[in-house]
Amino acid sequence: MNTTTAFSAYQLGDVTLNNRLVMAPMTRNRALHNLPNKLMATYYTQRASAGLIITEGVSPSPNGLGYARMPGIFSEAQVDAWKQVTEGVHSRGGKIFMQLMHAGRMGHGLNIPQGARILAPSAIAAQGEIWTDQEGKKKLPVPQAMSKGQIEEVTIEFVTAALNAIEAGFDGIELHAANGYLLEQFLSPHSNKRTDEYGGSIENRIRLVLAIAEAVSDAIGKDRVGIRVSPYGVLGDMPHYAEIDATYTYLANKLNDLGIAYMHLVDHSASGGPEVPVSIKRSIREEFTNTLILSGGYTFYRAEEDLASGFADLVAFGKPFISNPDFADRLRKGFPLNIKLDASTLYTSTAKGYIDYPVFEEEMVNA
């Protein structure tokens, strides 16, 4: 098999990527007090051989902080702290986008600052529990239904966050409209029961996502903006609905009109979620003519096939980048992968299971 496509350079907007392998955004919960730190800088710098790194979800506002130890990008201290991350990645020739994620109803009062609120399109609680460092697992609360003023405010928050990300040295941003967080909460008729211009029809349910994508593009440039979607995903209590295909096909069409840099489509079937039909992937591929990133359970050989055929422009990998900080280098050099992943340390607060996985040369020395 010809395995050169994955390691060819790729032009993503104004950014030239060294290869077509993307490090997918993954929650790691190391941001004590919601502030990026040296540990996080080391983690991302170690993985700079990826063509593109997309960070874990970063909140654009205090209201968007859903999880314990989730980083933010809404204060001057956070902007300054993120600079050590971007400087580290860039020092090794890497490129990095910040994923902007507002958790919406997927949060808890113990995980947000005093005065912040759990907001969502409608006052409908998601089923399930969420971890809090103070009291362990807690039932997800009923969120406050957003007023029109709050919807306008959240758009401004995303714009400010995007500008802050660029100030911190990021090459661009990804809007998180997947996995049951705020933007997907607006897309789904199960979590969005509004009767105003933001609810009901497909056109209304995608209105906020498009407004934010357009406003952020105007602020930092459309070539620096991507978006992640998860049609058929069920994370965050997102049941399927009859208009899934129509919703995402129409959204792709409208995002194409905006001319943003990429769409990032995730399929969670490899981790036990429902499979995303190939038909909707093809529909999005047809409607959206800029860069398409596909992710979810890829092997390198299947990634190469989809890249070589043009079905995907970039392919994102998640967990392999955790246990293989030099994942892209290992693939390029034909080195074996470290498949040992310590799941117990995925969401803790320490260096263990975070920055202590070895690169291949270290393994050889220590063997």
Rank of each mutant, 00 (worst) to 15 (best):
I220F: 00
E361F: 10
A31H: 00
V159D: 01
A219G: 01
G115F: 14
V159A: 06
L175K: 02
R194F: 06
R282V: 15
N253A: 15
I118M: 04
E76I: 12
T5Q: 11
T350I: 01
L39D: 05
R105E: 10
P358K: 15
L21C: 09
I260P: 02
N18C: 14
L17T: 08
G236L: 06
G221C: 06
G172T: 02
D133R: 14
S191Y: 14
P336C: 12
T289Q: 13
P141T: 14
S279T: 15
L32D: 07
L183K: 01
S269V: 05
P320F: 12
W82I: 09
A50K: 10
S122E: 05
G169P: 01
L210A: 08
E275P: 00
K319I: 14
A242I: 08
Q84T: 13
D257P: 04
Q84M: 05
F335K: 06
L331P: 12
A270M: 07
D306C: 04
E153D: 13
D196Y: 15
N290M: 10
K148C: 02
E87Y: 05
S91T: 09
I118Y: 11
K352S: 05
L331R: 05
V216G: 00
A316W: 12
I151S: 02
P274C: 03
L119R: 00
R282S: 11
I156N: 06
P113G: 13
G310E: 13
N18R: 14
Y232Q: 06
E287K: 15
N253L: 14
G149Q: 14
E363R: 05
L251E: 10
T155F: 03
F360K: 08
G334M: 11
D356P: 13
L210C: 07
T160P: 00
A242R: 04
A328G: 12
E197T: 15
Y347Q: 02
E184Y: 01
A126M: 01
F321R: 04
M1W: 08
A351Q: 01
E214D: 09
V276F: 04
T3Q: 14
Y43D: 07
M364D: 06
L331A: 11
S91G: 12
E286Y: 04
L337G: 09
I112Q: 15
M106H: 08
G64M: 06
L331E: 09
S344G: 02
M101E: 12
V209G: 03
D223Y: 05
Q144H: 07
E361R: 11
D306A: 04
L235T: 10
V58D: 07
K281Y: 04
G149N: 13
K319C: 08
F7H: 13
E76P: 02
G94H: 14
Q150G: 10
D329P: 01
H102V: 08
M98Q: 11
P274M: 03
P358F: 15
K281Q: 10
K137R: 08
F288R: 03
H240T: 01
Y43L: 07
R330V: 10
A161W: 00
E197L: 14
F311K: 04
N204S: 08
I53T: 06
S8N: 15
A9R: 11
L12Y: 04
A178M: 01
I355D: 01
